[in-house]
């Protein structure tokens, strides 16, 4: 299990028994591991002295958290108002068609996880896609496939 020591390292950065840090600790784990495993939620809860029940509740309440493993890249479709009125939902449909997986899903080959996200603050470039944090602005439905191909030129 190569991940186990990493989890312990992250957890150990927080003082034990400080329930207030739960949200932060879970965020750090997710940043490192891409999602929150059952093991990770349990470890965070135990370290900070909160119940697993509460840790699970927090992990499911806040949208920032994912409870299943993610694709190699994350494709975020901004659904802020500006993006919406400039056609974000048409883009979402196009992404679904292009990648074969829609918002909330991961492509079969594990390449992309697709998410609808709230405003990313780039309203001037609407509609906006983010591929692993790289921002693609003014994306038209007809060019989604080409833009994604260019952005996803990973291995």
């Amino acid at each position: 299990m190569p991940r186990a020591p990493e989890l312990n390292d992250i957890v150990a950065k927080y003082p034990p028994g400080k329930p207030r840090a739960l949200l932060h600790l879970l965020q750090d784990i997710q940043t490192a591991q891409g999602y929150l495993s059952r093991e990770a939620i349990g470890a965070a809860a135990q370290h900070l002295g909160v119940t697993e029940t509460r840790a699970f509740q927090i992990a499911t309440f806040y949208k920032a958290f994912h409870l299943t493993p993610r694709g190699r890249q994350t494709l975020r479709i901004c659904t802020g108002t500006s993006c919406h009125i400039r056609g974000a939902m048409v883009l979402a449909d196009e992404v679904r068609k292009t990648l074969g997986a829609g918002p909330g899903a991961t492509t079969a080959d594990g390449a992309f996880s697709i998410e609808l996200v709230n405003c990313v603050g780039a309203c001037a470039l609407a509609p906006v896609l983010l591929v692993d944090g790289e921002m693609l602005g003014n994306v038209h439905p007809g060019t989604v496939a080409r833009r994604l191909k260019r952005a996803g030129e990973a291995p």
């Binding site: 029940t53 699970f56 509740q57």
Partner: peptide
């Protein structure tokens, strides 16, 4: 503290952890 309201909005439901 065995159960809590998990998820949010209309998807909210009462459940034990995981």
């Amino acid at each position: 503290n065995a159960i809590a309201a998990v998820n949010r909005g209309p998807q909210k439901e009462i459940a034990p952890p995981f």
